[in-house]
């Protein structure tokens, strides 16, 4: 079963096999990059005679930025605050954010998973990583990987809740873009 609500793929000509395989390929790549849960609907339209490759997707609700309290437990201790790290994946980002806010001399790491900050203000709301920006970056990477390789004229329009990606061999013309948009709209309404 697809984890997405809608996943439609349409390829012109006698290319049922290609359509089926591209569905598997897109799932594999989105799964590899951990993006599949953030995409609600996905429409893929490929015209192999022109040729171009287009993807339109709707994103699930936005991802809030990661704060210090999300990666560890913040405790008030004598002389400042202590952060006990639970999620080491973002350790480098956390240290960078703390150094920027408090300065290196006030951030101490006595153990691998303990950071002590010599400050009176709590770091719990400090942003560690902008996950949404990271997600959009990963999504662009995924789309470039999914598109057939020779299709090097690309356009990628990303909004807060959707993305629209076109890749073609020839230069993209406004006529072509509006034609593709029309096709995708047809798929959406079908």
């Amino acid at each position: 079963m697809d984890p997405m609500e809608v996943f439609k793929i349409e390829v012109t000509g006698q290319e049922e096999f290609g359509a089926k395989k591209y569905r598997e390929l897109i799932m594999d790549i989105l799964q590899d990059l951990g993006l599949i849960r953030s995409i609600g609907r996905l429409y893929v339209y490929v015209d192999i005679h022109k040729p171009f490759f287009a993807v339109y997707g709707l994103l699930r609700s936005g991802i809030p930025p990661l704060t210090v309290k999300d990666v560890g437990d913040v405790l008030r201790v004598a002389g400042g605050y202590q952060v006990k790290i639970n999620d080491e994946e973002h350790m480098a980002d956390l240290l960078r954010a703390l150094w920027e806010r408090y300065g290196r001399e006030r951030v101490e790491q006595p153990a691998r998973d303990i950071v002590i900050i010599a400050s009176d203000t709590s770091p719990s709301e400090l942003m560690v990583a902008d996950l949404e920006a990271e997600f959009l970056q990963d999504l662009t990477d995924a789309l470039v990987r999914v598109a057939p390789e020779g299709f090097r004229n690309r356009r990628n329009i990303m909004t807060k809740d959707s993305f629209f990606f076109i890749a073609a061999e020839e230069s993209l013309t406004p006529v072509m873009v509006s034609e593709i948009k029309g096709k995708i709209r047809e798929m959406e309404n079908a």
């Binding site: 006698q14 290319e15 290609g18 490929v46 192999i48």
Partner: peptide, 11 residues
């Protein structure tokens, strides 16, 4: 030689 191509017969 083995040439490895993709999924679309047209290509």
């Amino acid at each position: 030689a083995v040439f490895i191509f993709g999924n679309f017969q047209e290509c």
